[in-house]
Write a protein that binds this DNA or RNA. Structure first.
Length: 459
RNA sequence: GGCGCGGUGGCAGAGUGGUUAUGCAGCGGACUGCAACUCCGUGUACGCCGGUUCGAUUCCGACCCGCGCCUCCA
């Protein structure tokens, strides 16, 4: 089965052909740790995690790196505002991020490089760029000279003239050319920094990814991912740094960018302030619900974030888990080949998760209707297809009985009321039985009677 | 000003030059003490106007509307 994906650089879908089929490399831009991540930040984490899972089914080794930007002016500001050290702020939000990633059921990347641990590699790259005539020093800064690179702007599909025409930024006086960007900038004594041939200072934002890719993955990688808003300037500049510091026209084979998460039709962003943190949402919804919602649209599309979206995600998962709950005693066959699975094929086509999810529903429906003999295979197919998307990995029992956020009525209390209701039913006291049903319903607990007894679940 | 994306049934969201997913919600039915779950049935929607075509939601052109990047941002 061939994997195809949309390459931002060429602006079309291409068959995926890794540089080395024995070892596929993928780098995704992680967070700048100055705050909790918002649900929009979670989208690339979930999308590329799914892509990572998919790649692992096709290649013997996949090396996935997702960085942590732990030195940045925004972190410095947060530290100042909170009267905390920069290291403490970075550490605190790094831990929070990793916890959020666990809640969203993302696999741990193979590498999680931190900017502050790779300053040497960054300085080495700066030195090379200066040596090769692509960078220059000015007033304590080192700047990348964009005019020195043929093809600058190729990734984001824009020309230097066009960019400057619409420019809304003031041009620093020490720049030779308005579009030049910072590789190294000076720090004052009370600011964090490192000694360097260009003075005490700190790296520019774009540099860390270039340097860490080179240091940890090599001169060329297969896939580089991130949100659409990183295409320019971040990835354009990364490309400039990497390509110009070595003799290669491209250092990334496939650039992949996810679309925005919107709120009321507008991009969710920290600067607009219209965001919801993952942390906050986890108080009301399980991580799997958030994950499902993020995968309910194809990754390049915009996705409108709303309560309705999450409620629908929850309802869909309830329906899928119901199918699993009803065959808890069936041992799934997890060995059948995946190649023919429609859900798998859909994912191989540029990660078409909406179709893959639709196929999950088809499998669940087939499972509900199947004879006992067929359930083993169908349950296995459902679980394996879902696993590719990081879904349906919980026990149905806990899915339905664990509460999402604040604990409501306890399981023991529910069981006690069910017992009382059972007795009421035996006594033909249906009024009391219905009263208990209503009482539990009001507390978010639904009862389901069957021949085998009464089951319950939280809504 | 430059570059780019999108407008699909009540909502979400795929897809296709002709047989028009999927989920949620709704409606009818089976099942049920009641209910839930499940199952069965039920919805010809593709912004507007032209063009190409035997046939367009799908291709081409104009238009309208929304959004994004060009500044930190996933």
């Amino acid at each position: 089965m061939a994997l195809t994906l949309y390459n931002t650089r060429t602006r079309r879908k291409e068959a995926f052909q890794p540089i080395n089929p024995q070892r596929v490399t993928m780098y995704v831009c992680g967070p700048t740790v100055y705050n909790f991540i918002h649900i929009g930040n979670a989208r690339p984490a979930v999308v590329f995690d799914t892509f990572y899972r998919l790649l692992k089914t096709q290649y013997p080794e996949v090396v996935y790196a997702r960085n942590i930007t732990d030195i940045d002016d925004k972190i410095m500001k947060a530290a100042k505002d909170n009267q905390e050290s920069i290291a403490d702020v970075a550490e605190r939000f790094t831990q929070a991020y990793l916890e959020d990633m666990v809640s969203l059921n993302t696999l741990k990347p193979d590498l999680t490089p931190k900017a502050t641990e790779n300053v040497d590699a960054m300085q080495a790259m700066i030195a090379t760029l200066i040596e090769r005539g692509h960078a220059y020093e000015a007033e304590g800064h080192v700047l990348f000279a964009v005019e020195s690179m043929e093809g600058y702007g190729k990734l984001s599909n824009r020309s230097l003239e066009d960019m400057l025409e619409g420019a809304r930024v003031e041009v620093a006086p020490y720049k030779r050319y308005a579009g030049d960007f910072v590789l190294w900038k000076p720090s004052s004594n009370d600011e964090p920094g490192w000694g360097s041939p260009w003075g005490y200072g700190r790296p520019g934002w774009h540099l860390e990814c270039s340097a860490m890719i080179k240091a940890h993955l090599g001169d060329q990688i297969d896939i580089h991912g991130g949100g659409r808003d990183l295409i320019f300037p971040h990835h354009e500049n990364e490309r400039a740094q990497s390509c110009c510091s070595q003799d290669s026209e491209e250092f990334v084979r496939y650039w992949m960018h996810n679309g925005y998460l919107n709120i009321d039709g507008e991009k969710m962003s920290k600067s607009l302030g219209n965001f919801r943190t993952v942390r906050d949402l986890l108080g009301q919804y399980k991580g799997e619900v958030l994950r499902f919602a993020l995968l309910s649209a194809q990754y390049r599309s915009e996705l409108d974030f709303s309560k309705a979206l999450l409620d629908q995600a929850k309802a869909s998962l309830d329906s899928l888990y119901t199918a699993l709950k009803d065959c808890t005693d069936i041992k799934p066959d997890m060995t059948a080949p995946m190649d023919a699975q429609p859900a798998y094929k859909a994912l191989l086509d540029d990660l078409n998760t909406p179709i893959a999810i639709a196929e999950l529903h088809q499998l669940a429906k087939a499972l509900n209707k199947a004879d006992a003999a067929d359930k083993t295979a169908l349950k296995g197919q459902l679980l394996r297809c879902a696993e590719l998307m990081g879904l349906l990995q919980a026990e149905p029992e806990s899915w339905f009985k664990d509460s999402a956020g604040e604990a409501g009525i306890s399981a023991d209390e529910v069981e006690a009321l069910i017992a009382e209701r059972q007795q009421s039913k035996l006594d033909k006291n249906y009024a009391r039985a219905d009263e208990i049903r209503e009482q539990l319903k009001a507390q978010g607990v639904v009862l389901e009677d069957s021949r085998e007894g009464t089951q319950w679940r939280r809504e």
